[in-house]
């Protein structure tokens, strides 16, 4: 006799997150809460040091009254969602064609050397994560990387040193 257990997961979402999700919910017709999954996951990911636990995915599903699998699918599909812990600063380096032509290889190498980790790894102290991503849509200023909401373009090793030095 499987039973609907009343959801106790809503309090995993901070009040601020819930308020923000509610705002998104208002933008879609009622009964179309599914449309708010992506913004909701972004919001909740931000609340949790940049990554999503299964409990948080379930909480989002409950909050939007969706089957859990519907949220798992989205969280697994988009590379912007992290399902394991990431460093305080997630450095997303574009690996697509324009950046490749503009030698993003040396950018990645420099980052790897400077931080002592490989792409898609996190530093011991939990400060940085290097991530290879697809086109960031800033091709004309390739090579490009993104940290948080900030884009950094026309990269050179020197520029990278300056960026890293400026990060807490």
């Amino acid at each position: 006799m499987a039973l609907q257990q009343l959801s106790q997961t809503a309090d995993l979402l901070s009040e601020a997150s819930r308020a923000k999700i509610d705002m998104w919910l208002k933008k879609y017709p009622a009964e179309q809460q599914r449309s708010a999954v992506i913004p909701a996951l972004h919001i909740v990911q931000e609340q949790n040091q940049g990554w999503l636990t299964t409990e948080l995915l379930d909480a989002v599903a409950d909050y939007l009254a969706l089957p859990k699998i519907a949220v798992y699918e989205v969280a697994n599909f988009y590379s912007m969602f992290e399902l394991s812990p990431v460093g305080r600063h997630k450095i997303c380096v574009c690996s697509s064609i324009s950046c490749m032509l503009c030698d993003n290889e040396s950018i990645m190498q420099h980052l790897e050397k400077r931080l002592g980790i490989k792409m898609d790894e996190t530093t011991q102290d939990g400060k940085f994560t290097l991530k290879r991503v697809e086109c960031l849509a800033a091709c004309r200023n390739a090579p490009v990387l993104q940290i948080g909401h900030q884009y950094h373009e026309n990269l050179t090793p020197e520029k990278i040193d300056a960026i890293l030095d400026g990060l807490e």
Binding site: P67, I69, A70, E73, N76, F77
Partner: peptide
């Protein structure tokens, strides 16, 4: 009516 399976990954 019990969505349990899904497409995971890309």
């Amino acid at each position: 009516g019990v969505p349990e399976l899904g497409l995971i990954g890309r």
